[in-house]
């Protein structure tokens, strides 16, 4: 009896997960981006399901980073930036009037190419996102800081010296700290812009494991130069070329049986 209830509960949770997984988290509808007169992205339409990892690949300058940065409006700081089409998160167009950029970014976290911890202590790095929201209560901060660092698989290495300057950590540790910092704000989406490109292979492997773990609770969009990495961590892959989304689909399908010739030649290393 008891076991069957548990089983059923488990089942229904599984069902929920399934529904959650099928729901669309991020969308772009015919999105184009201009820097001045230069068009760097055009007609990108993509639907990204919740709790999946989507890799964006393509040669440098293909627009994949620009596309990634649309979702937390990081391109807004570039001179003469202009976009057309719709960028949608949870059904809301995020460029429409009345959207608070700061609120948006609490939902959409970002991890950058080079680890960029603040020149502060490990603790303060993770607490930063909370402090700017006015949360300064020590017990609350302590709890979230610990949880976030644990989630980023860094706790065992730093738990004894949280007061240490973050810049003294190794590159891989710094990047995990940046991930912890992002998690502390409790986003639902995490954007990663080549998060392992500045790291050694062992650190890279740890970040990849971490991405796999984080998928349970977050929707992850990752730009990567490293094809194997895209293959290892992602559920879906989008291939960008010259500002266009050439192909988007299941990672396995893209890597084994690409529809487009361009995709195939890029993946097989003929250019890029």
């Amino acid at each position: 009896m008891i076991t069957s209830v548990i089983k059923e509960k488990k089942n229904s949770k599984g069902m929920q997960d399934k529904i959650k997984q099928n729901s669309i988290k991020l969308e772009s509808e015919n999105v184009g981006v201009f820097y001045g007169h230069k068009k760097v992205l055009q007609n990108v339409t993509m639907r990204i399901q919740a709790n999946t990892v989507t890799a964006l690949i393509g040669p440098s300058g293909c627009g994949k980073s620009t596309y990634l940065r649309l979702f937390n409006r990081m391109n807004d700081y570039i001179d003469n930036f202009r976009k057309e089409g719709d960028v949608i998160i949870d059904g809301n167009e995020i460029y429409k009037k009345g959207i608070e950029i700061e609120e948006l970014r609490k939902t959409v976290g970002m991890v950058f190419q080079k680890p960029n911890p603040f020149p502060k202590s490990i603790y303060e790095n993770v607490a930063y996102g909370l402090r700017i929201q006015g949360i300064n209560k020590k017990s609350a901060l302590d709890e979230i800081v610990e949880k976030s660092i644990k989630q980023a698989a860094l706790w065992d290495e730093v738990k004894d010296d949280l007061k240490k300057n973050a810049l003294t950590l190794s590159g891989g540790q710094q990047q995990r700290l940046c991930i912890a910092r992002t998690l502390a704000v409790q986003p639902s989406v995490i954007l990663m812009d080549e998060p392992a490109s500045a790291l050694d292979p062992i650190s890279t492997a740890r970040i990849e494991d971490l991405i796999y773990e984080l998928k349970q609770n977050y929707t992850i969009l990752i730009v990567t130069h490293n094809m194997q990495q895209a293959g290892r961590v992602s559920d879906h892959t989008g291939f960008f070329y010259l500002g266009e989304l050439v192909e988007f689909g299941d990672t396995r399908q893209i890597f084994t049986n690409p529809k487009s010739e361009k995709t195939e030649s890029y993946i097989s290393g003929r250019f890029g």
Binding site: N72, M74, Y77, E102, E103, L104, R105, K106, G109, M110, F112, N116, P117, F118, Y128, G129, I132, Q133, C178, R181, T182, V185
Partner: peptide, 9 residues
């Protein structure tokens, strides 16, 4: 950028 990305004004 890191600060902005965390939602800082």
């Amino acid at each position: 950028e890191a600060s902005f990305a965390l939602g800082a004004t």
